[in-house]
Design a protein around this nucleic acid. Structure first.
Lengths: 197, 197
DNA sequence: CATTTTATACTGACCGGTCAATTTATTTTG
DNA sequence: CAAAATAAATTGACCGGTCAGTATAAAATG
């Protein structure tokens, strides 16, 4: 009963995500969500307060899932450079998966200014990102391979570099450049960390 | 005659910009544009093919204007570091002006995936940005203060850093952080350029 | 059979674009 | 140069269509 409801909710969230990928956030209708979820139109309003409630929960779900994935991947490695590499391999997963997540994420970002819930969710996501950055920096400092004045500031810079790279790659919309932007991002971050072998 | 038409078009573009600042790209209606321009609803369709034509021209106008401003500001300085500083002072002008332009710009970016004209306009904008980066790098190399392997790649990284910083600042929506993100961006770029006094 | 869940039909609000009518500007003409 | 004719610009009512949300009916569940 309760379990089935949870399942339905996830099914609808996934449908909303798929619809957003293919139609773009703003033009997704309740009918689209129903179609992608293979249910009738009324169902969405039965399980969610309204459309914006669906998207708020979708945004939260997506950012949480991404962070968990990244954190898990990083914890599998020991050295700072390996961790950073794992981080970027998550962020730049595959061109397809990447495009899907990041296009929708960008749609959400564009809405942050009109929606305080989105703002809050994104801030939480940022904090998670910065935390990953900090961990990598601390590890590198312990290894004596990074030279960093201000850990907080540098972890912010890392995320700036990542977001900027992803957006630029996305806007150029060329799968071939995916690898290029990943390594470029990697090398630039190493310079920001003043990495020396 | 022809001049008056041009004036009207600009008036409508400005109104559309103002409407987008305050209401967000997607929710701007023809009526909004008319209200902000202080004309009646039919006027926009008289001077533009349709609504999307208005926004395409607005996007082009905004990005061109920004680049001209930046290029002009940079050419006023001689040394690489001064040029970079001038560049970032343009990019991070004032919190208010910044927010207005960049919020609307972000709206456009989110639409790029659905609109090839936007994609093309943004690519042109990127090329202008990279060109500014290249100029600064070449100047710094001539001065012997930067250490850069690949000029192209580095100019791309500079723009990544700038876009990432602006977006993160925008999302945190705290005017006090404006200065912080500017200097952080500046220092990170200097590290990417491996600047040494 | 009562409660929960799903399907369908409906409503009212809103929006982009059109267009006939009107106003304003420009040109022609006697 | 003034009146008439023409062209350009502006207005706002209106139409077709879409969509979120609701109401109601039907079906499934237990």
């Amino acid at each position: 009963m309760e379990k089935k409801a949870k399942q339905r909710r996830k099914q609808i969230l996934k449908a909303a995500f798929q619809a957003a990928i293919e139609k773009g956030y703003e033009s997704v209708t309740l009918q689209d969500i129903a179609n992608y979820a293979d249910v009738s139109k009324g169902v969405t309003n039965y399980y969610f307060k309204n459309k914006s409630d669906v998207f708020t929960q979708l945004f939260e779900w997506l950012t949480t899932r991404i962070h968990e994935k990244e954190a898990a991947s990083i914890s599998e490695h020991e050295t700072a450079v390996k961790k950073l590499e794992a981080y970027l391999n998550c962020v730049f997963s595959s061109p397809e998966e990447n495009k899907n997540f990041y296009r929708v994420y960008l749609d959400f970002l564009a809405q942050v200014k009109n929606n305080d819930s989105y703002k809050e969710i994104n801030l939480k996501f940022y904090e998670n990102c910065w935390s990953i950055g900090r961990d990598i920096i601390h590890q590198g400092l312990k290894e004596g391979i990074f030279e960093v004045d201000d850990v907080e500031q540098t972890s912010i810079s890392i995320r700036c570099m990542i977001d900027g790279s992803l957006i630029q790659w996305l806007m150029r919309d060329d799968d071939q450049l995916h690898e290029y932007y990943r390594t470029n991002c990697f090398e630039s971050i190493l310079k920001i960390l003043q990495y020396k072998k």
